[in-house]
């Protein structure tokens, strides 16, 4: 267990020293603040706290940014250590391979969590400060967005390990990570939208489409955070799911949780086959 924590501590330390924490916090905060400011400009038309509006747009942004940051954090985890020769060293010690991976996961997740918590904290503070309507603030929604953002990050950190453990070169792992991001976050939704348009109100839209949305952890994240705000649902053109029972409740999150576990397990299996 000490070994696992030592790996986690080292990864977190490297996250700080290599400016990963700083960089991802700055990027997330920049976009979040921008969205809040945009929301405050339009707040005259919407009868809701600025924070609510901001949460809706933040969740849309997070779907793109967080998987990208998570993959960039993790794609190097195994292939990079093979490149540098440190994997031989680590695997020559008694640490079991699953602990190596679990340790890295904890460390990377800590790095990403710090960036997410700081950026959403700053954005929320700004939204509350700029809000001229007064009234209750949807702090619960904010907490849910932050927590699910971390979960979304966890999914893609784990998927990044799968990419990293299946190739020997960092460059290949990087290309694989970008491909995964494109497929999961951009192309998947485009394909679904295309299917939806093609099938109209058919079987696909009613019984297949919601499940397909759920299968993709990024869409599950979107569903969870959108069920609060109808406005953003319409925005994203995914309104047809809002009535479906699939869109309700925390169990939508079973998808990202399952993805995280499955990806970590798969990465461990791959790592066991690596010959450093």
């Amino acid at each position: 267990m000490n070994a696992l924590l030592a790996i986690a501590r080292t990864e977190a330390r490297l996250g700080f020293r290599n400016s990963w924490v700083l960089l991802s916090t700055v990027i997330l905060t920049l976009f979040a603040v921008l969205l809040v400011l945009l929301g405050s400009g339009a707040s005259g038309q919407v009868d809701a706290p600025l924070l609510s509006v901001s949460i809706a747009s933040l969740s849309t942004l997070s779907v793109y940014l967080i998987p990208l940051i998570a993959l960039l954090l993790s794609f190097d985890a195994i292939a990079g250590e093979i490149d540098r020769g440190t994997l031989q060293l680590v695997l020559a010690t008694p640490i079991p391979r699953w602990q190596l991976l679990a340790g890295k996961f904890l460390g990377h997740l800590a790095v990403l969590s710090i960036a997410i918590i700081v950026s959403s904290g700053i954005a929320a503070a700004l939204a509350i400060a700029l809000d001229d309507q007064g009234g209750a603030q949807p702090l619960g929604d904010l907490a849910a967005l932050t927590a699910t953002s971390i979960l979304l990050g966890a999914v893609f950190i784990a998927i990044g390990y799968v990419a990293s453990a299946s190739v020997r070169q960092t460059g290949t792992a990087a290309a694989l990570a970008v491909g995964i991001w494109l497929a999961a976050v951009v192309l998947y939704d485009l394909a679904l939208l295309g299917g939806l348009l093609a099938s109209g109100e058919g079987v696909f839209a009613r019984s297949v489409f919601p499940w397909l949305l759920l299968v993709n952890p990024a869409d599950a994240f979107r569903l969870f955070n959108m069920s609060a705000t109808d406005a953003s649902l319409a925005q994203a053109g995914l309104g047809s799911v809002s009535g479906s029972p699939l869109a309700q409740g925390a169990w939508v999150l079973a998808s990202p949780v399952a993805w995280t576990l499955a990806a970590i397990l798969f990465a461990v299996v791959l790592l066991r086959r690596v010959r450093p």
């Binding site: 080292t10 330390r13 490297l14 020293r17 290599n18 540098r84 020769g85 440190t86 031989q88 060293l89």
Partner: peptide
């Protein structure tokens, strides 16, 4: 090992 490069920032 023959070739090993430790993380530069540690």
């Amino acid at each position: 090992p023959e070739n090993v490069a430790f993380p530069k920032t540690l």
